[in-house]
Amino acid sequence: MNFLKRFLLMLLMPILFTTHYVYASSIVLTQEQLTGIKKQNMGEKWLMLLWSVDCPPCFKELDMIQKLNKKQADLNVVLINTDASEETLLRRREIINKFQLMDLPNFHFAADQGAQSRFIIDPNWYGELPRSYFFESNGQSHSKSGVVDESLLVSWLGE
């Protein structure tokens, strides 16, 4: 019986971990990750949204994404948190959970690597937020600082 319990626990643990990871975790953004994201989204229109816990206007845009995410399966949005701080870890999770965006790909800047992470995304971006990158299906993109108009988001991410 003990053997059976142990065996089942061994089976369950990786799945429990994996499920938790998918729903609540964020991944450290690296150059390789960014290249991978872009490569995998080639041929599709998608949005990369950068946000911070220190940016009240960012929540307007997260709120819009939440609404779209409820309506639309496979919403092509990648979220990147720019805090670059371990101190904000809980807040980041709270916010993503509050807006129910756990099912979207979530990335974050490595601790104390804010400038480095910003630079690999866009050397001409100075950290103002929210920052949205609209990617065309051919991989080209254009960016906008500040909250994006809802109609633009809807038309860009529309099915």
């Binding site: 369950l12 998918v22 989204n41 104390d112 690597q113």
Partner: peptide, 30 residues
């Protein structure tokens, strides 16, 4: 439980593209 969890994990939208990139989750040294 196993079956439910397996079903749930395959239904997660995030899983459709980005599992391959989930290599590092730990921040720098505390």
């Amino acid at each position: 439980c196993l079956l439910i969890l397996l079903m749930a994990s395959t239904n997660v939208k995030a899983a459709h593209k980005h599992h391959i990139m989930q290599a590092t989750t730990k921040d720098a040294t505390t």
